[in-house]
Design a protein around this nucleic acid. Structure first.
Length: 363
DNA sequence: GTAATTTGACCTTG
DNA sequence: CAAGGTCAAATTAC
């Protein structure tokens, strides 16, 4: 079973690599491009499916919980990790490649996975905004043009706010962690800053509003709403709006919010898995992943990471006095060094009840 | 001291 | 006008 999955993933990687190396040639051939993309997606998708069917009872709230319970038995964890990564990478890829994937998903994209804890429920808020929804991510021309300066207190100008159709909305359902504090909203690798909380009619739990921590620095328009489900308090419904434009910055999110190529996805999985505690039993999957894909890093990953695929709105690809790190390294760094300034760092859930106040009931 | 969160007020939308 | 979304001063955390 596992061997099949591995070969599926390998196949996906292979196709992705081929696609990457042939990209210049294929650029003029949308058919071939599409075909290759299909194949990659199919391979990973199938692998993922199998992972789920392999252990339908697995309750994996997503990659954010990968590092919980280091003392747990390793083998199931590895698989859960892989699942989490596949799933999160997949949804994240959806998140980052909306334009590319648009053609491949139905207008009302609906990815449901039985037994899955991260479910992309809805694609677009409305089909008609599809074309215009993204134009702001490049120049910020129509999205909150006054955002940075509309704090016009003292000026006679009224605050100007825009809400109407500020972009695609993607809703993901994520399970609360079962261990530790189940109140915490799900981590997703980005750093968010809470800017509001609101009681929602008919909901027992308030909705929390977050924006990208780097909004100011890079005019990153990404936002998210976190709402605990009424009927299932263990599940959070997370709605994302806007795309991160802070991808390539070093001061930007420490965890790579990069659009992941297929090779990157697997590579990151490898990275994650190889960072499992050393007492880990021999894990064929992880060994394969680490051996197979470390070599990708220098070539494929780096080159693709230098290419801002999702619109190229990210800030400069160099950081002050320092070359852009491989996002994976960044992530690992962030994961284990907790150097980020954000308190919503990805390690928070790992260690404490930090988020509690962020989603407490009532005001 | 700086950055993040809280929270009531304000704004937009339907 | 009600509800949802955002702002920003005050507060809290680091």
């Amino acid at each position: 079973m596992e061997g099949q999955i591995v070969s599926l993933i390998l196949h996906g990687c292979k196709v992705a690599r081929e696609l990457e190396s042939n990209l210049p040639k294929l650029a003029d051939d949308p058919n071939m491009l599409s075909k290759s993309c299909d194949e990659v997606i199919k391979a990973f998708g199938t692998a993922k499916e199998r992972l789920y069917t392999q252990d339908p009872t697995a309750h994996d709230p997503g990659h954010m919980y990968l590092f919980r319970e280091p003392q747990e038995s390793q083998q199931p964890k590895i698989e859960a990790s892989l699942q989490g990564w596949l799933r999160s990478s997949y949804t994240q890829t959806m998140d980052m490649f909306p334009m590319q994937l648009q053609a491949e998903r139905s207008p009302s994209f609906n990815m449901q996975e039985s037994g899955s804890n991260a479910v992309l429920v809805a694609g677009l808020g409305g089909g008609e905004v599809e074309g215009s929804a993204r134009s702001w991510s490049m120049g910020g021309d129509q999205l909150r043009p006054l955002d940075a300066s509309d704090s016009g207190i003292g000026s006679s100008l009224q605050r100007q706010r825009r809400r109407k159709d500020d972009g695609e909305r993607r809703t993901v359902k994520m399970a609360a962690p079962r261990i530790g504090n189940t109140e915490i909203p799900p981590e997703d690798g980005y750093t968010w800053r809470k800017y509001g909380q609101k009681e929602i009619l008919g909901s027992r739990f308030p909705r929390s509003y977050y924006r990208c921590t780097h909004q100011k620095l890079y005019q990153c328009p990404a936002k998210r709403q976190v709402q605990r489900l009424d009927h299932d308090p263990n599940t959070f419904e997370v709605t994302y709006r806007g795309d991160h434009t802070c991808h390539m910055s070093s001061t930007a999110p420490s965890i790579p919010p990069l659009p992941l190529t297929a090779t990157e996805i697997t590579h990151e999985m490898a990275q994650i898995i190889t960072t499992q505690p050393p007492q880990s039993n021999s894990v064929p999957l992880s060994r394969w992943l680490s051996m197979e894909h470390f070599s990708l890093r220098a070539g494929a990953v780096r080159s693709t990471s230098g290419m801002v695929v999702g619109g190229g709105a990210g800030p400069s690809s160099t950081r002050s006095g320092k070359e852009v790190e491989c996002p994976v390294a960044d992530m690992a760094d962030a994961m284990f060094n907790s150097g980020s300034s954000s308190t919503s760092n990805s390690m928070d859930w790992f260690l404490g009840d930090k988020w509690e106040s962020g989603d407490k009931e009532g005001k």
